[in-house]
């Protein structure tokens, strides 16, 4: 949270175990207050993240891929807790995905922006801007899914609060560590661990969260979270994880279009 590794303000933690039931680690169990603190950090960081050049954001994301590459084995061990047989390939695909998004930062405006030939003496153009603070309810098992959910809003200039997978939170925690070594400005990426049932409604009801990625939650929770999100008119996405089109749907959800009219005349 905000570039630091803090315990829950509540002092709570919980145990996670592997498939055989063996103890793996104690992790912090975030509270409602921790959600609020994370959103404050994300909001404070957003203007700076967006004010950085798109090239610079791309460099930071590419640096993250390099950091992940250098800790590939450690990532594999954590990912293996959730994706036992696929861990090596899953990590490789996830790193490729970070690289893919690193290349998007300075192309989003070129693909989704436009100049508009309005019928009058105006120079009129539309350019994509970020929604702001995006909450991500992480995919419960897929590391690649988590990466896609986090990178899409970041590439577009949003800052992110992740609620990690409740049973398999350590890959998300490791992602937080990697982001610090990759020179993410503090607050750009914040990772909370804890009970999804407890945290998801708080996140979706939070007035200062602009968008939420619900791709990681069960159908059972979906209706309630969507209606909580409606209160502050959040941008909500629930996309698949199969293709570039899914990823771009995720990315487009968290960009706004700003159109500028500028007079033309002597």
């Amino acid at each position: 949270m905000n570039g630091a590794f803090v315990r829950s303000e509540s002092g709570r933690s919980y145990e996670i175990v592997d498939a055989s039931g063996t103890f793996v680690a104690n992790v912090a169990r975030a509270s409602r207050k921790d959600v609020r603190d994370a959103v404050v950090a994300a909001r404070a960081a957003q203007a700076k993240w967006w004010a950085a050049t798109a090239y610079n954001r791309g460099q930071v994301l590419y640096r993250l891929a390099e950091m992940a590459e250098s800790r590939r084995d450690e990532l594999r061990d954590h990912v293996a807790l959730a994706e036992a047989s696929e861990a090596v390939a899953a990590v490789a695909r996830a790193i490729d995905r970070v690289v893919w998004y690193a290349g998007w930062t300075d192309k989003i405006a070129q693909v989704y922006g436009s100049t508009n030939p309005v019928a009058g003496p105006f120079f009129n153009f539309s350019h994509p801007t970020p929604s702001g603070v995006v909450a991500v309810l992480a995919h419960p098992t897929s590391f690649e899914g988590l990466i896609d959910q986090v990178m899409a809003p970041l590439a577009a200039g949003n800052t992110v609060v992740v609620v990690a997978s409740e049973r398999h939170p350590t890959p998300a925690v490791l992602l937080g560590e990697l982001s610090v070594t990759a020179d993410f400005p503090p607050g750009v990426l914040n990772v909370l661990t804890g009970s999804l049932d407890e945290l998801a409604p708080v996140v979706c009801a939070h007035e200062d969260v602009d968008g939420v990625d619900l791709s990681g939650v069960d159908d059972a929770l979906l209706g309630e979270l969507r209606s909580l999100s409606a209160e502050s008119i959040k941008r909500v996405v629930r996309a698949g994880f199969a293709s570039d089109a899914d990823s771009l749907r995720r990315l487009r959800t968290f960009i706004e279009t700003t159109t500028v009219w500028h007079t033309v005349g002597q």
Partner: peptide, 18 residues
């Protein structure tokens, strides 16, 4: 360097280049 970074990013996104 920036040119290589920029076009590296296009190599797998040619479908979106219009």
């Amino acid at each position: 360097a920036a040119h290589f970074f920029y076009y590296a990013g296009w190599a797998d996104k040619l479908d979106f280049a219009g």
